[in-house]
Design a protein around this nucleic acid. Structure first.
Length: 784
DNA sequence: CAGTGAGCGAGCTTCCGCTTGACTT
């Protein structure tokens, strides 16, 4: 017989709390929500006050039956899920599903997992807040209605298996619109003037810049000409102190951003590592929108700062969450024990922990102090003044442990930062000697493409999505094929540099790379197509302010100022009508573009999205002859492909010549361009255009591949030619016919016998499952 | 691994948020 059963959401939390409470308490976890709407279309009765039909999903059955049994035995059940909308709903679902009685059920909340906080919470229990529950139901029902009514419209009008939703569709829209901004961006060139001066003393040289740029090369050149005979004087000197403050401790979103910038982790990876740190007790909960630190944390950080750095490095700070719609059920992400500067674990865990530790510690440290010096330098022959600035750190403060990064909005710039450098001692009126002056052509840059993390940041700013859904949302839009995360090679671009040196002006043309991208999010043709369709027919749903608008209403429901079913009625009636109307009247969406007429055949050339993706088509269905089709290449898009590029696609597959009496054909497949020869495939090296491949090059590629295949074979077994040891990407492995088998760790490669191979083949898990898995794949290919 | 692109139309797909494993690559 248990006296008290206390239920929280997370098992790690349960374990901690159990230690704080006496033996009268049994602490268990619900593992999040225990019920959800049924998956079928009858989940919500829209004609009857949006009555919901819930079920316990299969993977939650065990938890629920255990909790049910324990609840029956307990004298009192304490529902201690989080204090936000979702947490209140979890308590309500537990109450309903476990069949709890009101008189023996108590609802409590706490904001930090400490003994006093929990004891205090137990002293002041309350009842389930039904206003908050209703707000959650409104949220849940709205999301289901939007998702499950919009998605089928896409199946009918675009392609099966697609999806749309309040959060994901806006995420895609952001990426599509950013791509279009980039596409239409025209870089503007200007000339930037940089001068290097010396004071006359050895080694005392520094850099100065003209604050504005010249629009044309001629203007820049005039300026340099005027400077040939000019003298330069320090006109003014200004020194002013500057301060920099530390950033707030991490939330889910800022952790994802910093881990992406500093460690290069994807948002999913960051969350997986953080989860392990949390479960090991190293950090507080990792899904939070709060920057708040508990009193114990603030004390803990203080103690550590005093011990490690001394009193002048400490400054107590309380942070306020500014994010709209933040629910603040948890603390900021911080180390559980500030005394642990690092931990034992995998390298990725250590690195993420140290990042979290530094950020949290820095947030309780003093400002860094600088002295900034700005010198204005007059040019005797011109009105304009050059400006030189230097910065000296007077006190490092929080920078001793942590420096926040900013998103790299860069494109081509490799300029050194003129700040953070020292100026030599200067005096007003001092004459300077010009060593060199350059006018460098620079180009304005288009808006930056989103990374996973910068997209999360943007979504958070718009109040769209929650800490627990950022990573899954990013995955969803990639899995649906709306967005791809890719690297792109840049293109070289020339720029001019004029240089004044030794009284002479010279001009050189240099080259830089532009448009290089690493791990950026690009929309696909399908992503653009679906977005355009949704924007055209469901403007209200994909509006950037839609979530903010309904969130305000959810808040009103939570405050008891609004009836939740009224809110849903007002939303759903017109929405459902739009859905019906679109199903009935909208055309099938293909984003077709007519590119022109092929002068040779007189047939129409068009691009559109087809059953297997984007394609270019020569001719129409009305023509006598069947139209010709070709798939677009990677990196080509319906929106931007030109007539010439489209026509090139029809030139493949193409014969390139003969080798060993068999013909060689170059073509482009799912995995890029290849050569087919004697029914074998040879991939083309990166950067080689399939249209340019010559017979000699093709033969060379085939020979190279054959040699590589020979080189990678370490051993062929005498007993069976099909059994061999080969060198693979991850070291040696056994190839047995078409099957690849791992070599057990620590095996001496030279000592492997054919009997060993047969034994491992037998043990290989794929051997037994081979039949079922091949069945599955053939089935799925038929489907698609 | 590397073709495809008409229509017939069974039966399937799909949302967001709260939590962890149990799986395979």
């Amino acid at each position: 017989m248990i006296k008290n059963l206390l239920i929280v959401e997370s098992p790690a939390k349960a374990k901690t709390i159990e230690g704080y409470l006496g033996s009268d308490f049994l602490v268990k976890s619900s593992y999040g929500h225990i019920r959800d709407l049924v998956k079928t279309d009858d989940a919500i009765d829209t004609e009857n006050k949006f009555k919901q039909k819930y079920e316990v999903p299969a993977d939650k059955k065990a938890v629920v039956s255990e909790l049910k049994k324990l609840a029956k035995e307990a004298e009192t059940v304490w529902l201690a899920s989080d204090e936000d909308r979702e947490g209140e709903a979890i308590s309500w679902h537990l109450f309903e599903t476990l069949g709890l009685k009101e008189e023996k059920t108590k609802r409590i909340v706490f904001h930090e997992i400490t003994k006093p906080a929990i004891l205090k919470a137990i002293e002041s229990p309350r009842k389930i807040d039904y206003n908050l529950v209703h707000a959650q139901q409104a949220r849940r029902v709205l999301d289901r209605l939007v998702g499950f009514e919009l998605s089928p419209v896409l199946w009918r009008k675009v392609k099966p298996s697609l999806s749309a939703g309040r959060v994901q569709s806006v995420a895609v829209r952001l990426i599509v619109e950013r791509e279009r901004e980039i596409n239409k961006f025209v870089p503007e060139a200007s000339f930037k003037i940089v001068a290097i001066f010396s004071t006359g003393k050895a080694k005392e040289s520094f850099k100065a810049e003209l604050p504005h740029r010249f629009a044309t090369k001629e203007e820049a050149e005039y300026f340099l000409r005027d400077c040939v005979e000019a003298s330069y004087t320090v006109k003014s000197l200004e020194k002013k102190p500057a301060k920099r403050s530390p950033a707030a401790p991490f939330t889910t979103s800022t952790l994802q951003q910093e881990a992406s910038r500093k460690l290069g982790y994807s948002v999913a990876r960051t969350m997986q590592i953080a989860q392990r740190l949390y479960e090991a007790g190293h950090i507080t909960y990792m899904r939070t929108d709060s920057v708040n630190l508990s009193d114990t944390a603030i004390e803990g950080a203080k103690a550590e700062i005093l011990k490690a750095y001394g009193e002048k490095y400490h400054k107590k700070r309380q942070y306020k969450t500014k994010t709209t719609g933040a629910q603040e059920a948890h603390e900021a992400i911080r180390p559980t024990y500030f005394a642990n500067h690092t931990i034992q674990g995998e390298p990725s865990e250590v690195r993420l922990y140290e990042l979290i530790w530094k950020r949290a510690i820095a947030s309780q440290m003093s400002e860094a102090e600088f002295e900034k010096t700005v010198a204005k330098i007059s040019v005797s022959t011109r009105e304009e003044e050059l400006s030189a600035s230097g910065e000296v750190m007077k006190f490092d403060g929080f920078l001793k442990v942590y420096m926040e990064s900013v998103d790299d909005e860069n494109d081509t710039m490799t300029e050194e930062d003129s700040d953070n450098t020292l100026l030599p001692p200067l005096e007003i009126g001092q004459l300077l000697h010009l060593s060199e002056m350059t006018a460098t052509q620079r180009f304005s840059r288009p808006p930056a493409r989103y990374t996973e993390a910068s997209l999360v940041k943007k979504l958070e700013e718009l109040g769209i999505g929650r800490p627990s859904t950022y990573a899954p949302t990013i995955s969803t839009i990639q899995n649906r094929g709306y967005v791809v995360k890719e690297d792109r090679d840049g293109k070289p671009r020339d720029y001019k540099v004029l240089k004044l040196s030794g009284g002479q002006i010279s001009e050189v043309v240099k080259s830089e790379m532009t448009g290089v991208e690493r791990s950026k999010l690009f929309p696909t043709d399908i992503g653009m197509l679906v977005n355009d369709f949704l924007v055209e027919h469901f403007k209200g749903i994909v509006d950037y302010n839609f979530t903010a608008k309904v969130e305000r209403e959810f808040d009103e429901i939570a405050q008891g100022q609004k009836e939740w079913t009224d809110m849903l009625e007002k939303f759903y009636r017109p929405f459902h009508e739009e859905v019906q109307d679109t199903l009935e009247h909208a055309d099938r969406a293909t984003n077709e573009r007519i590119l022109g007429i092929d002068p040779q055949t007189g047939k129409q050339v068009s691009v559109r999205v087809g059953r297997f993706g984007p394609l270019v088509q020569l001719g129409t269905q009305d023509d006598e002859e069947k139209p010709k089709f070709a798939s677009l290449r990677k990196g080509q898009m319906i929106e931007t492909i030109t007539f010439e590029e489209a026509m090139d696609l029809f030139k493949l597959p193409k014969k390139v010549g003969e080798f060993e009496g068999k013909e060689m054909v170059v073509a482009v497949g799912r995995f890029g361009p290849y050569i087919r020869h004697n029914s074998a495939f040879y991939s083309l090296p990166k950067g080689l255009d399939p249209l340019d491949v010559t017979e000699e090059q093709a033969i060379e590629i085939i020979k190279e591949k054959r040699q590589k295949d020979i080189d990678k074979v370490i051993r062929v077994f005498e007993e069976n030619e099909e059994a061999r040891i080969e060198n693979g990407r991850w070291g040696p492995f056994i190839r047995f016919g078409k099957q690849n088998i791992k070599i057990p760790k620590g095996t001496d490669i030279n000592a492997i016998t054919y009997a060993d191979v047969l034994k491992w083949v037998e043990e290989d898990p794929k051997s037994s499952k081979a039949k079922t898995s091949t069945k599955k794949t053939t089935k799925s290919t038929k489907k698609s």
